[in-house]
Structure formats: C-alpha cells, structure tokens
Amino acid sequence: MNAAAFLRRLAGRPWLWAYVAAIAVWIVTILFTGGRGAGEVLTAAFTFATFSVIVGIGQMYVVTLGPGNVDLSIPATITLAGAVATKVMDTQDGMILAGLAVALACGVGVGIVNYALIWLLRIPPIIATLSSSFLIQSTAIAYGRGIRIKPPPMLADFTTAQVFGMPVLAICIIALAAVMELVLRRTLYGRWVTAIGQNIRAARLAGIDVGRTRFAAYVMSAVFAGLCGYLLSGFSGGSSLSMGEEYLLTSIALVVIGGSSVAGGNSNVPGLWGAALFLFLVVTMLNTYGFGAGTRYLATGLIIIAVIVAASARRPAR
C-alpha cells in the first residue's frame, strides 16, 4: 500500500479526529510551558484516561445495540464493586485475585439484574438501568459507609506502576481495547451486536438470538464497570462513595467523541482512547492556562455539543 492510499484510508476513519484533537490540545498545552512537562502531561493523561476507557468500552457495546440502549448504572456499579472488593481484600496481598473475582461478580450480578428488568418489565433500557442504579447506589452507600480500607499494597503498586513514563495499567487497557476491537469487528458476537444496532428486525429474521446478544452486552458493560471500580479503588487508595459519579457522563461522552454512532450499529474502540485522552488533555490545558473549574466544565460541555453537531453534518439526517 502506498503512502497516499494509506493516508486516504486513515482520513476515512471516524476515530481519527479524536486523536488529532488530542494531539493539538497537547501541543497547545506544552507551548505554554515551553516544552517543560510534556512527558508528565502525557503520563497523567494516560493514567486517568485508562479508567474512563474501561467503562467506555462497555458503554460502547451497549450503545451499539441501537437507539435507547444506554447503561446508566455504571457509576453505581463502580462504587459498589470498589467498596465490596476493598472490604474482601482487607489490605491482604494474597486476596488480590479474590477481590478481582468479587468485583467482577458484582458486575455480573448487576448486568443480570439490568437485563432481567429490561426483559421482564419490557421497559426501555434507560429506565431499567436508572431504577437498578438507585438500588445499587443505595447498597453501596449502606455497605460502604464508614469503611475506609486501604487497598492491598501490591494492587496499589500495580495500578500506579510505570515503565518509561507509561502507566502499566494503561498498557494493559490498550491491549484490552485491542481485543475488544477484534471482538467487535472479527467475531460473530461483534457482528451480531452491530447487526442488531443497524436493524433489529432484520437481525432477528436473520436468525440472531437478539435476547442473548443484548444480555451479554449489558453484562459486559457492568463487568467492565466492576473492573473499573476495582482498579480505581487500588489507584486512589481505597474506595469512596462518590468514586463512580463522573463516569456516567464521561462514558457516554467517550462513545460520542470517539466517532461511534449514538444511534447504534456503527462503533469503534480506538476512538474511545482518543476521546479519553482528548477530554483529559483539554482539562489539563485549561488548568495550565489558569482557568478555573467553571470554565473547564463549560469547555467540556461545548466540546461535546460541537462534536455531535459536527458528526451530524458528516452523516446527514435520515
């Protein structure tokens, strides 16, 4: 393949713009510092982007299922999994794997409850995951109140470890994202998810087990939220009751900015990383230039709206 054709193919990728924007923002940031701290900014960006990418992957699979599919229970699941896992591990290095298993089991449980509500009550997923998130949040609050247990030292070390300035955790999650991209593009399951998002009736007529495919996507989203809660509690020195809060909006924002279609049926994983890095770098840039929290929120909101308006120009309204 020659360079020109490669570039043309690259430009056709919806996720490219997230990376372009991320790099642009990074350059603007280090222009201000005159090149100092360029590496540190990137390290921090990768560190914090990692956690949002984990939940972003799950949210993306759910959103791919088509209009109305969205998982609002992610923050509550993060909080619950974090609280339960730190309590089970109880600072013991030997319990790290047990903690991971418990956190993932929390995710499986939440996923099953979510889909049971969607299926049994025949209610839109937004309402199902909304009502279950109320219950999960309460459980997490009641369970986690007053406990402030430090994570096992080995877990804390692992989540904060770096090689050549690159967080080890970020490398793991890049690998995970690569696997999930392959699952989406190359496996039968990924094709099913995409097909359901494009046309659920056609998918059903083609013999796809729509129920089971959706069930798996909701469980996967909750399991990733559980994983995020587990790692986050290791990273931030224990679980807290508000640790999941910001991830609801962030997970949806990543899907949108990453170039996946909000109407479903057309998603990509690489964009999640680009979008996560971009969002964090914007915050860093505004911080560097001395803007306060208010301006940062304002900029984040305007960016999300600008991206969705731009995306609608790319794909004209049906």
Binding site: A253, G294, Y297, L298, T300, G301, I304, I308
Partner: peptide, 13 residues
C-alpha cells in the same frame, strides 16, 4: 449531556 456541563460551568462561574 453536553448542556449539563455547560450549566454546571456557568453555575460555578
């Protein structure tokens, strides 16, 4: 969702 950030930002300002 984007607007929720905008309103929050304006409130903080």
């Amino acid at each position: 969702l984007g607007m929720s950030f905008v309103w929050l930002g304006l409130s903080v300002l």
